[in-house]
Amino acid sequence: MKNILLLLVLSAFASGRAYGAIERASVDKCKGCHEGVVNSFLDGTHHGKAWSKDQTGPKYNCETCHGNGDQHINDNKIESIISFSKKSAQKPGKLNDVCMNCHGKSSDLMFWSAGKHKRNDVACSSCHSIHKEKQIRSASTCFSCHKDIRSQVNRFSHHPILEGKVTCVDCHNPHGTLSHGMIRAETNNQLCYRCHADKRGPFVFEHPPVEENCMSCHNPHGSQHFHLLTQKLPNLCQDCHDFSRHPGTPYDGKKGFRGTRDNKLIARSCLNCHDRIHGSMAPHNPAFPDNSGKVFTR
């Protein structure tokens, strides 16, 4: 198995094909009016670097993406050329077709046509800068449209997105998936399990909502409550658990550290005892059921 993997990797390194070259004469036609744009494209972008340094492959020029420029040179109108600027006369779908001609068959872009971004007329150039080297700071690019998420990641409890340790594209594929939320997995739990392998189980005692959907209790983008919880404890637990004695008792303003010090409210509330809420590997002792896996206290 290891040898096969190694062979696959080595063969990839050994069999690279030429990417192409810039057709200089054609580019110079545009440079007369757009010198700054052309220079920054040639010197500072991946496309420009790749095409300008590999003279063995197919030839590319500005018209590869912008279409025939003869009429534009004559009338100097933006409508007579494929423009990716804000003032473009083309619909985003048409602009994206230009990019997809080359990039559409990559694994990441296979499901572009089913994604929300395509449907909402997001153009490739809305996020990607073609003429100027600009690293996509994933979160800030996304926040420009997803203002609700910008708010959530700034809250009390959040994944380290602002700190640069987790990025939006770690969990989402902005180029489209068949999953809800364009996540990089088939289900929410399968996505979370990639990093939170300790939550996978299998457990002897399972907590059904945990097994079905992490989002029942957590907001992955950020929350006002600790542990990314959607609601404050004990209320979140009590919205599902009512039984005799403590699960159904109101924990009110009389019961903090300053009051009767009820341990269902102070500190971490229900988790003061029921910490194995994601599942337990402990046995159940019918003779002493409170210290047991079945109620997630062990």
Binding site: F226, R261, I266, A267, R268
Partner: peptide, 20 residues
């Protein structure tokens, strides 16, 4: 309210100071 006037040994729970 869950952390206001936090003490380690409130009688009904023995705490260590986590998140306080």
């Amino acid at each position: 309210i869950s952390f206001d006037a936090y003490t380690l040994t409130p009688g009904t729970n023995t705490l260590t100071g986590a998140f306080s």
